[in-house]
Computed example of a mutant assay.
Amino acid sequence: MKRVSMARIRAAWLDDTLTTAQAAEQVGLTRANFWRRAKALGLPSRKRGKPWRIASDREAEFTDMWRRGVPVAEMARHFGIASSGIIYRRKALGLPGRSHDLRHFAVGREEEFAAMWLAGIDSAAIGKLFGQSARTVVERAHLMGLPRRPRGRPGLPIEAWQEIRLAALLADAAKREQQAARERAACEKVAA
């Protein structure tokens, strides 16, 4: 049996930054022997599960991003974890939930948002434009009272919608110019 001091076993066992396998390797024991010796010393159980992917040295960064209202999807990409991990970490840190007002991301652009939704543009494309997830786009549409869309229907590409919208704006401008030209011609006729 290999001689390892109780102090080294205790220190490695209580170091929560190490996995059990890493702690065992540090003291030069197999994982099973390390576990047996720790139990014989009466040490408390180790925390189970995966360690947080957001280490304690990044908690300030996480807290700052959460309070600034950075979208959960963007935070998940930044920290390299799933969106649900962001929510779990938020709860573990005791941060307040986000108010429902953050779902109102299209404030001031409601008409544009509604037009895109009604034109059938894909929710993910709308979300990308507004910096939100597709799910948040769907929730916002329902909050605005917009009609539900059938599932599985391919959405109109946002580029096509922008071209259609630009064509409509140009046609409207042309109609106004033609009307103004007719009014000028009528005024000139009356003046002559």
Rank of each mutant, 00 (worst) to 15 (best):
K2S: 13
D15R: 03
T17Y: 03
T19H: 04
Q22C: 08
A24D: 01
Q26V: 08
G28F: 12
W35R: 07
L43C: 04
L43A: 02
P44K: 02
S45M: 10
R48A: 05
G49E: 02
W52I: 05
E61F: 15
F62A: 04
G69I: 04
G69E: 11
P71E: 04
A73N: 09
M75V: 14
A76T: 05
R77S: 12
G80I: 11
A82I: 06
A82W: 12
I86E: 00
Y88C: 03
K91V: 14
L93V: 12
R98F: 00
L102M: 09
H104G: 04
A115T: 07
D122G: 05
I126A: 02
G127Q: 08
L129N: 06
F130E: 00
G131D: 13
G131N: 10
S133F: 01
A134M: 06
T136I: 06
V137H: 09
V138D: 05
E139F: 00
A141S: 08
M144L: 15
P147A: 08
R148Q: 13
R148Y: 15
G152F: 03
P154L: 15
G155Q: 05
L156Q: 07
P157H: 14
E159T: 14
R165A: 10
L166K: 12
A167I: 04
A168R: 13
L170P: 03
L170D: 07
D172R: 13
D172I: 00
Q179V: 05
K189I: 09
